[in-house]
Design a protein around this nucleic acid. Sequence first.
DNA 1: CTGACAGATGTAAACGTTTTCGCTACTTTG
DNA 2: CAAAGTAGCGAAAACGTTTACATCTGTCAG
Lengths: 331, 331
Amino acid sequence: MAVTIRDVAREAQVSVATVSRALSSPDLVRPATRDRVLSAAAQLGYQPNRAARGLITGRTGNLGIVVPDLNNPFFTGVLKGVQARARQADYAVFVADSDEDRTTEEQLVRAMAKQVDGVIVCSPGIDDTLLYEAAGITSLVMLNRRLRGVPAALMNSASGMRQVVDHLVALGHRKLVYLNGPRTSWSNKERRRGLRLATQQHGVDLVELGPFPPRYEGGLQACDLALATGPTAIMAYNDIMALGVLARLRDRGISVPGDVSVTGFDDLMFAELCSPPLTTVAMPLAPAGTLAVDLLLDGLNTDSADVRQVDLDTQLIVRATTAPPPPKLHP
Amino acid sequence: MAVTIRDVAREAQVSVATVSRALSSPDLVRPATRDRVLSAAAQLGYQPNRAARGLITGRTGNLGIVVPDLNNPFFTGVLKGVQARARQADYAVFVADSDEDRTTEEQLVRAMAKQVDGVIVCSPGIDDTLLYEAAGITSLVMLNRRLRGVPAALMNSASGMRQVVDHLVALGHRKLVYLNGPRTSWSNKERRRGLRLATQQHGVDLVELGPFPPRYEGGLQACDLALATGPTAIMAYNDIMALGVLARLRDRGISVPGDVSVTGFDDLMFAELCSPPLTTVAMPLAPAGTLAVDLLLDGLNTDSADVRQVDLDTQLIVRATTAPPPPKLHP
DNA sequence: CTGACAGATGTAAACGTTTTCGCTACTTTG
DNA sequence: CAAAGTAGCGAAAACGTTTACATCTGTCAG
């Protein structure tokens, strides 16, 4: 049926061992025979059977990524980076969607472990203990989550939040409110950390609300609570929530950024397209994806035991939802 | 290292053959021994090595999907369906992003072919001949594209477009303009087909413009051209273009839906969230994904040579961008 | 000239399954 | 009761690689 290494061997008048060597470690065979093998392989259109190779080497040439929701542009952004880098390294990518469910998430990692050389986990939710357990089965790289002894590709949310606060304070805002995302999320913790530091340093008021579901509806709900605290700027956990805030503000006839400023986080596509365009923090999604792959491959190829946790920079994108606060009515 | 079938055999006091049978064709072994094997396997945490199995069966237990752009929510919608159905059937999913590039698209299909039992192709761009060639290497299922002899999961765009026209005509619109997407796209052809039929039948005016790039910028550009033809309703090829149209209309101070109605296509997330919420056509994305997997598995398991091309229904979603046209100023 | 050594290649074992074939023991049938 | 089938199971071959080991040739040092 398919052309095997044996066919190439016959065509090139050598043994299968020589063919294998000529292809995988070329410096072990004489140049003349190597050329004969290579041209024979090319002529027959030979492609090694990865299953057979994997059976003996223990390597699959695959890697996996498990994400909570493929419909979330955040994750597809990193997936895109993962995909591209993996292809360069001649790896194939398994993708699994956990539907935000922790138990299936764990099942997925476990099921993948058998067929991949490593897996990238983008899971705000899943338990530490389960992750450590999974790390025992296969090599792991975490995305946006710090776990002792496990390599990680991190995006510097704290720095992004600091940039937001700096920006708002520079505009003259003194009463800020932050709408929390999920309590368990590492990203939310980081954002709060950056937030606390920056607001304390600037000596401005900060009210924290939530947690809210990081969704449009969460933004709608949070908006009214936020307004009740009388802020001049509302910082949402992410862009989708910010979109909900914007919608609710419009419904209530409150002008953005005239009466109140709004910021998001993530810089998803619609942040640029909504109206007014959203001031937000751009996350290095694709770079984080490629970095995650690099970390994974590093861990596989070098037997050094150093686990690297790399921080990537984030960048405030100023658009049209932030402006100086309105002048005080009763000075 | 890992627990193999031999370990299970020893534990259960049977031969490896019996273990294999107990797991893959349980009715071939006596219930008593089957139970012994199963409990031994469970106790040891045995998981079959898929590479070894694939080596002998010729099946990999994987399937692939190649999409033009992972950042496009349309494709992640179907990917999500694919992923879910594949998992139910105990298949793993390779995903590849071609970055809208035809040559890499072909390379990807070719590279995947070796490691999967079949691949789902969501490619408006790639050549027919290349696809037929690929179909020779592995089993193929097309998404939203009709190709003789190749199974396909199709979404009935024509019907969706008909629903749009019916809706607009019922509101009283008589001058419609359609903004074409890519000429080569099967979906665009289908939408035009439905459009032509419906407008002729209703006897209303239709102006076609374009093709435009199916993006936000395409919508901006198309909007001005559309207005110049004096329509009361603008139908965009897809939601993203419609978003551009809405933005441009707002900039020009034209009220939606007061002065002009706008419709999109696809019902992506932001269609519901933008303002005003967009009247559009919902596409069965996830169902199409699961259908594609079913078609693929059908083709693999049954040796019947019938190729099925299944149409899925689309559904008009009326939101706030459509209304009766403004009364004529000069009657 | 001999021994050792290096380079190039071949032989065969191994990887973990599935599956064909054959064997045994039992059941059915004439 | 003999012949023929059948159910249940084990032995071993096969899948397509990689790689440890063996073999062979030639070169070089002594």
